[in-house]
Simulated assay, not measured.
Amino acid sequence: MLPTSTDVLVVGAGPTGLAAALTLARRGVGVTVVDRLDRPPVTSRAAVVHAYTLEVLDRIGVGAPLVARGLRSPGFTVRDRDRVLLTLPFGTLPSRHAYALMVSQSVTESVLTAELAAHGVRVLRAHELTGLCRDGAGVLADFAGTTVRARYLVGADGMHSTVRERAGIGFTGPAGGEESFVLADVRVTSTLPRDEVSLFLARSGPLVWAPLPDGVVRLVAAVADAPPEPDAAHLQALLDERGPTRRPDRVREVLWASRFRLRHRIADTFRAGPVLLAGDAGHVHSPAGGQGMNLGVCDAVDLGETLADVLAGGPDTLLDGYAARRRPLAEEVAGFADRLTRLATLPPSRRPARDLLLRLLSAAPPARHRFAMRLSGLSHRERTPR
């Protein structure tokens, strides 16, 4: 049952919404989390938690339990079929988490949900936002006839955000149509390292090969016309087209597979009075480099800490600082992910120069370190206030 009032209403119970709510609950703020789904999804897109995100999750007490559930990856490689063009080792990163953690988003959500419940907050499900009204006291949020009064509302309800739409916040990006991606968890016979993420560059689009615990491999591929439910034959064809050739992978079992479509978009602002955006509600971009969920979780903790400061008596203008910090980071991450995608789809005439550039980068420790810092999110550490 929905409450009649709350200090902060969080709409969306994915990693972003859960992290925002947990940050607030740990600071003693009254927070309510709602989600339109009647149960959490068992399949999910994100499969990597980067070093900086783990540092941020440590601040809200879930870094260690999440690490215990995942697989530590010591490096990242960029490949063109059998050729390794670039190797990025994470072992020299200046972090206590000198690795990328490979873990399904559904596991990340379950860890966050359990910790949130330990602070007395449970997700209220099967409640869909149908309207909101802003006034001098905050927000009135409508859920099919039930109204909740909140001092602040956090929109963490994904790329098709109702909160963003109802608040009248634009969601703009470069001209162009939707991109289509295949996403699957499979078991494969493979000679690729089982603790290392590989990004395969191919003219038809990139293919991400990411190991998960229990021998599972996450495949993500940009596909011009992805089928609604990719089968083993389709996934095998993608591996044959883009993966290793001398010792090709063989799909043994498809645990689940789907497709998703997106356009590159960033919200015009992350704040409209008492309404604030975080995660995919504020930014959507290519999954290359596994940046999306990581940026969303960092948004969430930053926003939760800022809201807690405001509700403890700090000036409301602190929330303008949140919006001013996060939107430029979203633009930077979107550009980085887009560049990784475009590396894959260069025409044949430009690929030799690309391959040479990547090999030079791999052979130059300072440049390789900067790339690893960027991929891990640690380059953002000095640009956030906490």
Rank of each mutant, 00 (worst) to 15 (best):
G14V: 05
T16D: 14
P213M: 04
F200V: 00
D195P: 08
R36H: 03
V62P: 10
G176H: 09
L295M: 12
L346D: 07
A308Q: 02
R252P: 12
A312P: 11
I60G: 00
A156L: 04
F200N: 01
P74A: 02
V301I: 05
D355G: 08
L235I: 02
G138N: 06
L199V: 11
D195L: 02
R252D: 15
V42K: 15
F270C: 13
S379D: 14
F371D: 12
A281M: 10
T16H: 15
H285N: 02
A210K: 13
L303T: 13
R261T: 13
D249N: 14
P89D: 00
A118H: 06
I60L: 02
G63D: 07
L22M: 12
P41R: 01
V186M: 06
S95F: 03
R265H: 06
E196A: 05
G176I: 00
V301M: 02
L37M: 15
S110W: 02
T384N: 12
P348D: 14
R83G: 03
L360G: 13
P228D: 08
F260V: 05
R271N: 05
T108R: 13
L140S: 12
T191G: 12
T146R: 10
D268P: 06
G292P: 01
L356E: 15
W256A: 03
S5R: 15
L212C: 05
R203M: 09
A353R: 15
V33D: 02
P366E: 08
L212T: 14
E179L: 13
H369Y: 14
A25I: 12
G63T: 04
S161W: 06
P328S: 01
R194Y: 02
R246L: 09
L346C: 12
R350P: 10
P287K: 04
T162H: 05
V78P: 04
A100P: 02
R166S: 04
T269H: 00
V49A: 11
G168Q: 07
A257E: 07
A25G: 10
G63S: 03
V10F: 05
L307E: 03
V217W: 11
S180E: 13
H380E: 14
Y99D: 04
G136Y: 07
D80A: 11
T146P: 14
L295F: 02
R194P: 14
A272P: 10
W209V: 01
V186R: 04
